[in-house]
Simulated assay, not measured.
Amino acid sequence: MKFDETSQGLGLRGLQIAAAQAVGAVRLVPLLKEHVREDLRLGTHAFGDERPRAVGVRGQADRPDVAYCSYLPHAYVLRWSSDGTAVAARGAALSDKQLGLRDVGGVRVLHRMIRQEGPGALRFLPLHLAMEGFLSLHFGGPDVAWSEYSRQALSHGLSPRRESAVLGSYVHGLEDAVRMFEIHERQVGALVFVADALAAMVVFPHPDDYRALHRSLVRDFFGELVYQYAILYDDVPAHRVAVREAEIADLAGLRAAVARARADWAEFSGDMAGRVLREPLRWQTLRQVGPFRLRRFMSALRPDEDNHIGEAIVRDSGELEYCKTFRLSAAQVRRAYLLEKLAQNLWDLARTAEALGVEVPALLVRLLNAGFGYLLKEHVLKNLPTGTV
């Protein structure tokens, strides 16, 4: 799997940032839609229990039996029209057959991450599209049979590849914030900050969709760093805007002052989310439906900066219609960064070490500490200098 295009960040075309609401360490910044359209709607289908599920993943040509396993609380069902006509808002109750859901050895297995559900309807698994793309990054492992790699690495690649996350209900203060905060009339999304670190960006196509799915935020998953920040920090400072009374002489002056305050709030929040809004992202288009593209993305893997993965639906005009992001932990970034460097250097350990500016033993230690020791033959690891791990 490759992210095959690098382009601009998510941006906020068609959206407006409203004043933030904060409680404890959680700050939610509402995103309002400038012009509400009716030709794209999103519903949810709850699976009804908390059993882990597997998803049969296609597209791994060299690994035909790859499966993605996770806690899957619900699926999204997207409905659209290609000619701009309104799409009726309705529930997303689907049968097991329609979902492609079956029992295999006591495990509920879904057929594919994305599935067409008849004309004008698409079922997909929110956030798991992004995480599956991240997990499958260089999943095939070494493409040259270097002598240092184990038989498992050469035969099965990185399988199994694991990453951990935390359910939103375990992020201290998030459930209270979601329950208490006001929903604006044209609100379709939110920037979620924990201790003023961007935890997630959520956007839905229509204000009614957002109202229906607002509380589902606590069933999304969040990164380890977000969970830790929520525990370590009790609150966040208020962002106050000064209004100079001497500059206000009439209603026009008051309107101008309010407009400046709103612009200041928007700039403040936009700057905090700049890594995903403005920095270039790597993209992969998964499906084109009418004038909409369902895509997943990943920020450039820079170990000294915050990094995000996510998925989005973008209109042909560039307007953002749907989005969910996930903030990677430092350990997750280090693992992906190492894999990327290995792949760029054809999995040659000497070349990779040179590219990283280290000696080969130091690279081996990094791989071992990142959980990739199983990729290497046992005698390679035994030759590491004593005390290097």
Rank of each mutant, 00 (worst) to 15 (best):
98 Q>A: 14
357 G>C: 11
40 L>A: 01
314 V>I: 15
270 G>L: 05
236 V>W: 11
236 V>E: 14
365 V>I: 07
138 H>P: 00
145 A>M: 13
95 S>P: 03
36 V>R: 10
62 D>P: 00
259 A>V: 01
90 R>D: 06
52 P>F: 11
138 H>Q: 06
29 V>E: 10
189 G>K: 03
329 S>N: 08
52 P>T: 06
291 P>A: 08
248 I>V: 15
135 L>E: 04
64 P>Q: 05
287 R>Y: 09
60 Q>P: 00
110 L>S: 06
300 A>T: 12
252 A>D: 01
333 V>W: 09
92 A>W: 01
125 L>K: 00
90 R>W: 02
336 A>K: 10
341 K>M: 15
90 R>P: 00
93 A>P: 04
146 W>V: 08
279 E>W: 08
84 G>F: 11
247 E>D: 14
354 E>P: 00
22 A>Y: 04
59 G>Q: 01
206 H>K: 00
170 Y>K: 11
247 E>Q: 12
268 F>M: 07
134 F>S: 04
142 P>H: 14
56 G>C: 03
119 P>G: 09
1 M>D: 08
292 F>E: 08
29 V>S: 10
275 R>H: 05
1 M>C: 04
286 L>V: 03
55 V>W: 07
389 V>R: 12
27 R>W: 09
195 A>R: 08
55 V>D: 07
211 R>M: 11
10 L>V: 05
319 E>H: 04
183 I>F: 06
58 R>D: 13
265 W>P: 00
327 R>N: 01
230 A>K: 00
258 V>D: 03
198 L>E: 04
147 S>T: 15
292 F>I: 05
29 V>D: 09
34 E>V: 13
76 Y>S: 13
310 G>N: 05
36 V>T: 13
286 L>M: 07
196 D>R: 01
386 T>A: 15
130 A>H: 04
337 Y>V: 00
203 V>Y: 07
58 R>E: 11
318 G>T: 02
137 L>V: 03
311 E>H: 03
192 V>P: 05
213 L>R: 00
365 V>Q: 14
145 A>W: 13
278 R>S: 07
84 G>K: 04
147 S>Q: 15
105 G>M: 06
183 I>E: 13
336 A>C: 14
22 A>I: 03
126 P>S: 05
260 R>V: 06
301 L>I: 07
284 Q>P: 00
97 K>T: 15
165 A>I: 05
140 G>N: 06
380 V>K: 05
350 A>F: 14
84 G>H: 05
380 V>A: 12
